[in-house]
Design a protein around this nucleic acid. Structure first.
Length: 396
DNA sequence: GAGGCGTGGAG
DNA sequence: TCTCCAAGCCT
């Protein structure tokens, strides 16, 4: 049965067994020493797998260390406020992961008495856990024979079999899943899964794969054809629009107005400077005033230009223009936002902001040392100097 | 099924 | 600067 499937997939049983042995031997000698590989405790595996979704190891590493210290158990994570989890996630992107992680912790407390479940149906039912993550957790933490299929595995298998299919379609997913399951070493599923992904990350890379160092080179049909980087086949790229965004540093005395985004969608639950998209025929300063009026029902005076930052998201890019502003009148009303706050500069670091907003905020001086009504008396160079001092103080 | 959803590194 | 794309999931 297994043999028939393997032959159909392009490798006979002997080849499969040889590939497994070569891959596992390579992994034993070349695996990176990563904190979540130190032990197989399911909570650690879970957190690491969520962080590693669409995120490279080097980027996730510092976040993982801080997160495990801050939220060492399911119970600690479930008991924490969402804003604390988002703050720990600040800068890593795909914030739905943080929201789902927090939600899943609650689900584990309620449904499983605080113990991470070990059966596939229960794991799959947790927020933020799809087919990949369920297989990863169950194989790595509980040694269950479930093959993972992620971007690495798709690439490795596509090349191994010179597979011309599209892994994004339903039939393509099914086919890759079956090939992965056939190749999986049932004697060591967790290690084997990690080995496949490690091979994809270190050797079988998207561009310029290191085929001379690959333990599976002799089995690789794409290499035999002479063009391993042609697999997997990639779809056409889509046009991404660019938007002009204007936002305000809206002062009331020494306090700054910040607003919290809705808890779903782009940057959901994160805090930001009030603002929005520039409309046709509108000056950027007018945009700030209009957005404050429309979205918060407040009247402001727009002053000097503070700075701008370019930023690229997945489906579009922006230029964020920021202006110094003064609050004139009105209490903010929640229309699209989920919260608002007047905060001092010191308190800004307690809130989670998107990358673009954080870049602006990090240019603010340590404290407001000018009377209300006066805008931006510090030059850019002076702000940068102040910021340096603040950072060095923080480290000490 | 298709598209939304961040960020940073590499070439 | 620009493009690609990384240990995916949800709607």
């Amino acid at each position: 049965m297994t043999e028939a499937v393997n032959i159909e997939n392009g490798h006979d049983a002997k080849t499969v067994i040889r590939c497994r042995r070569l891959l596992l031997r390579w992994f034993a000698a070349n695996a990176r020493d990563l904190p979540w590989r130190r032990d197989r405790e399911v909570y650690a595996v879970w957190i690491s797998e969520i962080m590693l979704q669409q995120t490279q190891v080097q980027q996730a590493l510092p976040y993982y260390q801080r997160f495990m210290k801050r939220f060492p158990t399911v119970a600690a994570l479930a008991a924490a406020p969402l804003d604390a989890v988002l703050k720990a996630w600040e800068g890593m992107g795909y914030y739905a992961r943080a929201r789902n992680l927090h939600r899943a912790a609650g689900q584990i407390m309620e449904r499983h008495g605080g113990h991470f479940p070990a059966d596939p149906e229960s794991v799959r039912a947790l927020a933020g856990i799809g087919p990949y993550t369920a297989a990863a957790i169950l194989s790595i933490a509980f040694n269950q024979p479930l093959a993972v299929v992620d971007g690495n595995v798709i690439r490795v298998l596509s090349r191994l079999h010179a597979w011309p299919g599209d892994a994004k379609t339903t039939s393509g997913k099914k086919e890759i899943q079956e090939r992965a399951q056939s190749l999986l070493d049932p004697a060591a599923p967790g290690v084997f899964n990690e080995a496949m992904m490690e091979l994809g990350a270190l050797i079988c890379t998207p561009q310029n794969p290191l085929c001379r160092a690959c333990p599976l080179a002799a089995c690789c049909q794409a290499l035999a054809q002479g063009m391993p980087e042609k697999f997997p086949v990639k779809s056409a790229k889509k046009f991404r629009p660019h938007y002009q965004i204007a936002a305000g540093l809206i002062w009331k005395k020494e306090k700054l107005l910040i607003v919290r985004r809705p808890e779903s969608g782009l940057l959901g639950g994160l805090w930001e400077l009030p603002g929005g998209k520039q409309e046709a025929g509108e000056g950027l300063d007018e945009t700030v005033a209009r957005e404050a009026a429309e979205k918060l029902g407040i009247k402001i005076e727009v002053g000097s230009f503070f700075g701008h930052v370019d930023h690229a998201y997945t489906h579009f890019s922006i230029t964020l223009h920021v202006y110094q502003c003064r609050h004139l009148q009105g209490t903010p009303h929640l229309i699209e936002h989920s919260d608002w706050r007047w905060v001092s500069i010191d308190e800004l670091d307690d809130y989670a902001f998107s990358r673009s907003n954080r870049l602006i905020i990090d240019q603010l001086p340590m404290e407001v040392n000018y009377p209300p009504g006066h805008y931006s008396i510090l030059s850019t160079a002076e702000r940068a100097e102040k910021r340096k001092e603040k950072k060095s103080k923080k480290q000490n």
